[in-house]
Amino acid sequence: MDHATAVFAGQRPRLFGLAYRMLGSAHDAEDVVQDAWLRWAGHGAGVDNPAAWLTTVVTRLCLNRLDSARARRETYVGPWLPEPILTTDPAAGPAATVEERESVSLALLTTLERLTPPERAVYVLREAFGHSHAEVAAVLDVTEAGSRQLHTRARRHLAAVPTVSTTPADVGPLLARFVAAARDGDLAGLEALLAADVTLWSDGGGKVTAARRPVHGREAVARFLVGILGPGRWQGTGAAAEVNGAPAVLAFLGGRLDGVMAVEGDGEVRAVRILRNPDKLAFLAGQVSRSEGLSGRPS
């Protein structure tokens, strides 16, 4: 491996993590990193600061994609959710600290869709990667004052969206009881685990069965889950994994990854996100196939 290739290989996980947080799509993030590699292969030998140069290239490539991505999502069938990733995979980028895991959570990535592309870029570079406003300004070709203004606007927009305080240590056992109650058809037991204002999103992209609109409220969410997971309803198997920095259940049917279910809560389930669009499961399925094993089915 020559020096330029080795330098890029060392940067690749960080670049993927940046592109994924910018786009909410693992597939698109891989494409952006590949485009960055092609540019690096042509110009990398003369670059004094490879990390800064590559950060700028990847960020600007993502900005070019965000407008078209937003247009596609406006015609998306049903609720749109980010592509899930295993954050235990080192190749998926930084997710070692609490802050890094939070910056890749399904909830935050969904909320980031509310921001303009420049606001999202500033927020990700500042909050997830710790860049100074001077560094962000250089990446985006704006002034430091402009970077600060974009960051302030981004934080203001995100502050207007309700969030759920969640820690993996709290969610793991809650998720296990939640799944068990749904599979047993225990409607009362499931309702006892749900907050009154719980919301469920199910992303099938019009390609598989999924709710076309968010499901709101304890009773409606419980009945929906028992309807799809209860006795005699679903014949697959499940395994626990860390998805986007938090415990989740991977559902397999006939040996194929069929879906992902993640919950958020602070003692009770406040939000449920189910991803079943096969296009969005391809990257995660590849990660799973390379993984040495999962922790087993929640009981």
Rank of each mutant, 00 (worst) to 15 (best):
D31K: 15
A182R: 00
E292Q: 05
N244A: 02
L106E: 07
Q11N: 15
P247K: 03
D31G: 11
I228F: 01
A211F: 01
G217F: 07
N64A: 11
G93H: 00
G93N: 01
G265P: 06
L250Q: 06
A137T: 08
Q287S: 00
T56S: 10
S105N: 15
V198M: 13
D266G: 00
R177V: 12
A154R: 01
E191A: 06
G296H: 09
L190Y: 00
V98W: 14
I85Q: 04
A45H: 05
G255Q: 10
P214K: 07
G267S: 00
C62S: 05
A107R: 14
L106P: 03
R114M: 12
N244M: 03
Q34A: 13
L284H: 03
W53F: 06
G296A: 06
W80N: 00
A239I: 04
L125P: 10
A4G: 02
Q235A: 09
G227F: 07
L86H: 03
A4T: 07
L275I: 13
F252A: 04
D258G: 15
P117I: 10
D35M: 12
G189N: 05
P90H: 02
C62I: 00
A246F: 08
L284I: 11
G46P: 12
V98L: 15
S202C: 10
V136H: 13
A282M: 08
T110R: 12
S289K: 11
G286V: 11
L66E: 09
Q11K: 13
N64K: 10
A36S: 06
Q235P: 15
A95E: 08
G217K: 08
A169F: 01
R213S: 13
T167P: 15
M22V: 04
A222S: 08
A241M: 04
P50M: 12
L38P: 10
I274W: 11
